[in-house]
Computed example of a mutant assay.
Amino acid sequence: MKYFQVCLLSIFLIIGVSGCRGKINIEDVTLSMILGIDVNDENKVEVFMASPVFSGETQAKTEHFNVQTLSIKESRNYFDTRASGVTGGGKIQAILIGSRVLEHKNWFSIMDMFFRDPKFRLNADLIFVDGPLADVFDLKPKDKPELPIYIPQLIQTADFRNVAFRTTIRQFHRMYFEKGITPFAPELAIQGEHLVVNGTTLLTNNNLYNRTLSMNETQLLKILKDHLEGQLVIALNLKKFKKDVDDVFTDEETSFYIKDVKRKIDKKYSNGHYSFNVNLTLPIMFTESPIGLTNSSEAILKKAIEKKLQKELNNLIQSFQKDKVDPVGFGILAHSFQYADWKKNENHWLDTYQKSNIKVKVKIIVIDKGITM
């Protein structure tokens, strides 16, 4: 028995030692953390890469590369001719898409490798950039970390505050091929020496740029989709509580946390037309109030918030219908409702969606008025 144990231990030791023969030191690897795709002034496709530098002998902590190519996989060969180590793509945190890319309807074809190569991370963030990517990769803000850390943290924070949607390439792939929803992803822009979350980019049914949702519109979309992450703070200007016209501080704004969204959608299909009644129940906590809150004044303020928020949500959906974009995913609701009727409309869903009757109704439940009454 003892002889058997010794032999078994020896086998494990041999296997463990042999597993170390193919090791690569981290300083000999160029880890691709941020990848970018853009179209330059010569109408050529460029691929960008940012990688951390692990050598203590260099001042720069990140190395940047860009090459002209039509293949992400081929770009690695060019990167390896310039990088100090073997390029690896298994740690990609974010993929940036330049605004000029979205002028070409076949742009998504260059992404094909991400979904076929099992070594790539499908939970990497997909981010659109308002402007050329060269400006982003040349950015060196003095009070921010390097790009491979800066960009993922920026998107993560914006998603937690519900001013952006964190969209992975797996999620975008699903939206791209799903006929019942319009693809979207967060948008970055450069302001001075800093990157800022500019809102949410919506695409057309041809996968071209349609419009950018503002921060406020992105928050409203999160409510409609019942997709809250972390904390959502809504600020509304309520004109009926305006007191002093001449003062800068007009004391008309109220703000509150939305703790949760309870969404119920009533669906109906009749004579070739869909109807969606979106009923939203929102528990809120007041953080600012234009009036003192008593039982009677609370009811007045709550009614004003419901009316204002309901109007903004309905206006947003009407603008979506006008632009023929469906980021809420009413098409998904349609084919989960009556699949036979959906099959009649799936190939021209956006035309059907544009003619659909969609109404949003908001109910506010105050769960906290704060300390000051």
Rank of each mutant, 00 (worst) to 15 (best):
G370R: 02
S270N: 13
V101D: 02
D135I: 08
I11C: 12
D130I: 06
L126Y: 09
F79Y: 05
A124H: 10
S109Y: 10
N345S: 12
L202N: 01
G272W: 00
T69H: 03
H348A: 12
I365Q: 14
K322D: 14
K264F: 08
A158K: 02
F79M: 05
T218A: 01
A124E: 11
G370P: 04
S10E: 05
Y3N: 12
K264R: 13
D159E: 15
I332A: 07
Q156N: 15
F128Y: 15
T200F: 02
I358S: 01
A83Q: 06
M285P: 05
H194M: 08
R100L: 05
K369I: 13
N77I: 13
R21H: 08
Y209S: 03
K262R: 13
V360Y: 00
Y339V: 01
F330E: 00
T250K: 15
F337A: 11
D138K: 15
D125W: 07
N216G: 08
R116G: 07
A340W: 08
N279M: 08
D323F: 01
E27H: 09
W349V: 04
A340L: 11
L102C: 07
F241R: 03
P290T: 04
P148K: 06
L238Q: 01
V53C: 10
V248K: 13
I127F: 04
N295L: 12
P141M: 04
L350Y: 05
L313S: 06
L280F: 00
H194Q: 11
I364G: 00
Q318G: 08
F241C: 03
L102W: 11
K23N: 13
P52V: 01
M33Q: 13
K179D: 13
L122H: 14
